[in-house]
Design a protein around this nucleic acid. Structure first.
Lengths: 179, 179
DNA sequence: TATTGTTATACTCTATAACTATA
DNA sequence: TATAGTTATAGAGTATAACAATA
């Protein structure tokens, strides 16, 4: 996330049409949300602003949002296999390898050999991983507070309820065959 | 979006912990939404299922969601410069070039030379582009209906209102200096 | 035969630097 | 000096195919 400073700031864009017609009123400007009725697009923009906010937490602790998800799933379900984490988060098992590699190299996660099934590993947080998650959870809670404040009274619960409805009632992203 | 069929379907994952403890009840399985209280994560998942739904429309008409946004902005604001479209959609002007190239090669959009400022183009839909948008709008409306149905009575309006609040009250994704 | 982890690879989206031509 | 468009390039994130070890 780098800063730059080239052009003067302007929240709205004066369209060429307005200029061509001699109108210079800022009211003629198009809005920064040009597809305000497209649920998919609005979800995308909202996700981006929330993630940008969360990235300040991630940058502090040098972690990616996806890795935060993996750590959380492992912490809440110690002993999971990589394939289970993949399935839970919708990350392909083929892409999970490098992600776990990073977390293992940082000594946050351990791959524990399972005698019952020597194809797979049981994933656990190390003591360092648990301490890390402790910090991460505290900072994440702060972030969630900021988002809640933006959403207003009851807004957070309402939003989560509506998002849950979408996840429950629309076809899932990937059938787990594809993980 | 390819189909595959390797493993038996399972909506929930039986965690190794439960198995190790001898529990095999499906109630012990972890949910497919492992971060149900993280607004950012839930927005991501919801966006993915909605986009997957919208992709059926895009695949039919051989277009990407981002290109749909560009066409919509140009249709609603004929004569905009590339930089204006970039700003409106949060797409860097450097990445806008190839996107407009594609739309121009498909004869949906025209770059019209502006005598008043020969650095820039005025973007317009061609007649073919307008006809295309006509089809696209109709199919998109169908898609929006499906999403609305999933959200239930008033759900759509509530969700849009909450998402708008996030966009208005959290810091913007990019200052327009960075476009 | 099927599953788990792995490697290699490709594709999309996004990001940065540097150039040109115009203003 | 600043802006609009462009090119080249690099980095995420995600996708598929093929393989070894194990069940």
């Amino acid at each position: 996330m780098k800063r730059a400073a080239r052009r003067p700031s302007r929240a709205k864009v004066a369209p060429a049409r307005a200029a061509q017609q001699g109108r210079t009123s800022p009211d003629a400007a198009i809005d920064i949300t040009p597809l305000p009725d497209a649920i998919g697009y609005m979800l995308r923009r909202a996700h981006l602003v929330v993630v940008k906010n969360f990235m300040t937490v991630c940058d502090e602790l040098n972690i990616r949002p996806g890795q935060y998800g993996i750590l959380t799933v492992i912490e809440n379900n110690p002993g999971l296999k990589q394939i289970d984490v993949s399935l839970a988060l919708g990350i392909k098992r083929t892409n999970m390898v490098a992600l776990i590699d990073i977390l293992e190299k940082r000594a946050l996660v351990r791959r524990v050999v399972v005698r019952a099934d020597r194809r797979s590993y049981a994933l656990h947080l190390t003591p360092k991983g648990k301490a890390f998650m402790s910090k991460l959870r505290a900072r994440s809670a702060q972030h969630e507070e900021e988002v809640s404040a933006a959403l207003g009274e009851n807004g957070r619960a309402q939003l989560l309820s509506l998002l849950r409805r979408l996840l429950e009632r629309l076809p899932p992203i990937v059938s787990d065959d594809e993980i």
